[in-house]
Structures are given as C-alpha cells and as structure tokens.
C-alpha cells in the first residue's frame, strides 16, 4: 500500500496544475459575477428577490433545482478534464521521455496504471466536490437572503447533480483511458473517430444489405446515460418533492445501468492495463 500511496502522490503532483484548472475557471466565473454585481449595486440596479418574479416555483423546488443547475457547467468542465487527463494517462511518460525512469522502479504495472486511472478520474471528482461545496455555500447564502434555504432539499439537488457527473465521468474516463492504451497521441479523438467511422459503416451496410448490425455509438450513448433529474413539476411542494428526490436517486444511482457502467469501466481499465503491459519499452 505504501508504494501505491507514493504513486498516487506522485501522479497528483504531476497533474496538480491540470486538476486545478476547473477550480480556477470557477473562481474566474465567480469573480466575473461579483464584478458585474458590484457594478450593478453601485449603479443602483441590484434589487433582486425570488418572490418578485411572477409564477416563481415554491421554495422547495428552487432549493432543489438551483443546486442541480449550478453544477451543470462545472460538471461539463470536469468531464472535459477527465478526458484530458485519461487520454494521456498511459502515454505522458513516453512523451515526457521519463518512461524508462518510471518503469525501472520496483513497482507493479497494475499499481502504476491504477494510480494514473484514479488520478485522471477521481482527481477530477475531487475538484468537482470542491466546486460543489463552494457553490453550495454561495447558493445557501443567496437563498437565505432572497427566499428560503432548505438544507435537505438543497443538498439532495447538489448531490444528485454531482453523482450524475461522476457516473458519466467514470465511463467516459474509462473509455478514454482504454483509448490511451491503444493510441499514443490524441487518444480520445482517434478513438472517437474510429467509433464514428464504424457507426457510419454499419449504418451504410444495414441500409444496403438489409442487415441489423448493432451501432456502437448508440450503445456507448446508452451506457454513458447522463441521468440528470428531469421532468420536474413546478408545483412540487414539500410532501411530493421528497418522493420525487427518492425516485431520482433510483433513476440516477440504484439501477442496472450503474452496475453496467462500473462493470464496463472495470473491464476497460483491466484491458487497457494488459495492453499497456504488453508494450515493449525501447
């Protein structure tokens, strides 16, 4: 375990700057809002209250929905950075001319691969968590000042949004990690190009030959399945929103698709590591 911990620390140190970028983007975003708000405040235009808006949903819905919505952009940024980190996971050392140094250490290839996989995916989760905590505090303050802050509903919205992106992140990250074992450069784009190419080929073959070849992209999209809470009624109040949140948890986490996502991610990691292990170090 000591060796694995050392690998994790090393990979975090190497990727620290990249992992920090989503945090800097969020900080920049807040700075911009703060600047706009300050300008509006000093020009006397800042006078906002949820209650003033006609047809405003009840506070319960606002607490839940706002916390889901606020994580949309950070979630997407997190997915982009998962792709950036995992697509270079098994090739960055070669590009950096340090593959021989790292592979000459008495540590298992499985550990080395797992460490890069974890840092590429969970490292970005960690950044997403940090943003989520910060967003939650900001939203809590705004809601408390402008309307009503309901902790249970707010945290449920935030947690469901974060978990949805985490689930999407693990499958996209695993696919990209797998691509990085096959392609040494621009792994994600090359992998995507091949999948899209096969998709079009199968569509053409199906149309010309009346075949029923399975379309890979459809399966992948189904597997990724960004299960965000949706179809919400504006008139949800405290009693039925609890039921709705429970149902959303079932839809997001407790289902076969989650098991399939974890299983496929595991298979992709193992296959990628076996391919990486079979590479010669010249």
């Amino acid at each position: 375990m000591k060796k694995f911990k050392a690998l994790l620390i090393k990979d975090l140190q190497i990727n620290k700057k990249t992992l920090m970028i989503p945090l800097w983007i969020t900080a920049g975003f807040y700075l911009l809002i703060l600047l706009i708000s300050a300008v509006a405040y000093f020009s006397g235009d800042l006078n906002f209250n949820f209650a003033d808006i006609q047809g405003t949903p009840p506070s319960e819905s606002i607490n839940y929905i706002v916390n889901i919505a606020i994580m949309g952009l950070p979630g997407l940024i997190s997915l982009i950075f998962i792709i950036i980190l995992t697509q270079g996971a098994l090739n960055e050392n070669i590009r950096n001319n340090s593959e021989l140094f790292h592979r000459s250490q008495p540590v298992s290839i499985w550990y080395q691969s797992a460490s890069r996989y974890i840092v590429g995916i969970a490292g970005n989760w960690l950044a997403l968590f940090t943003i989520a905590i910060f967003n939650f505090i900001v939203i809590a303050i705004i809601l408390a000042v402008t309307d009503k802050f309901i902790f249970g509903l707010a945290i449920s919205g935030m947690a469901q949004s974060v978990v949805s992106f985490m689930k999407t992140g693990i499958i996209i990250g695993s696919l990209t990690f797998f691509c990085s074992a096959i392609f040494k450069d621009k792994a994600f784009l090359q992998g995507l190009a091949i999948i899209v190419g096969v998709q079009f080929l199968f569509i053409i073959l199906n149309a010309l030959m009346q075949w029923h070849l399975p379309l890979p992209l459809n399966y992948i999209i189904k597997l990724i399945n960004v299960a965000t809470p949706s179809g919400m009624d504006n008139e949800l109040v405290n009693e039925n929103i609890v039921y709705y949140i429970r149902e959303a948890w079932m839809r997001i986490v407790i289902n076969w698709n989650t098991l399939l996502q974890i299983g496929v991610s595991g298979v992709l990691f193992v296959t990628a590591t076996l391919i990486y292990k079979s590479r010669e170090i010249k």
Partner: peptide
C-alpha cells in the same frame, strides 16, 4: 540522465 521526470 534526461529520462528523469521533468514535471517533478
């Protein structure tokens, strides 16, 4: 000797 990891 250039094979050391430059990022550390």
């Amino acid at each position: 000797v250039n094979s050391l990891d430059d990022r550390l």
